[in-house]
């Protein structure tokens, strides 16, 4: 049955490969907790979170710490 399905889909096999891109994008967004169209974060410090090493303490004064 799977073989029949694959044969049936043969005319669009290259397109199916191309569709792996958006599917991989979706999987990446799910795995990393990323909203693909951007989020509401306005902080310049964590715009590229979590890989934001190097920004040091910039913006620290903005926050009130418990």
């Amino acid at each position: 049955m799977l073989e029949n399905l694959l044969n049936f889909l043969r005319p669009v096999r290259l397109y199916a490969l191309l569709l792996l891109l958006p599917l991989a994008w979706f999987a990446w967004g799910t795995a990393t907790g990323t909203r693909l169209l951007g989020d509401d974060n306005e902080s310049t410090e964590t715009l590229n979170a979590p890989g934001t090493g190097g920004h040091g303490h910039a913006g620290r004064g903005l926050y009130f710490h418990k």
């Binding site: 974060n41 306005e42 902080s43 979170a49 903005l62 009130f64 710490h65």
Partner: peptide, 15 residues
């Protein structure tokens, strides 16, 4: 609003 990491002090913010 700011979301603050209590260990690193890093924050996310939005209004």
């Amino acid at each position: 609003v700011s979301l603050v990491n209590e260990q690193t002090g890093r924050g996310f913010e939005f209004t």
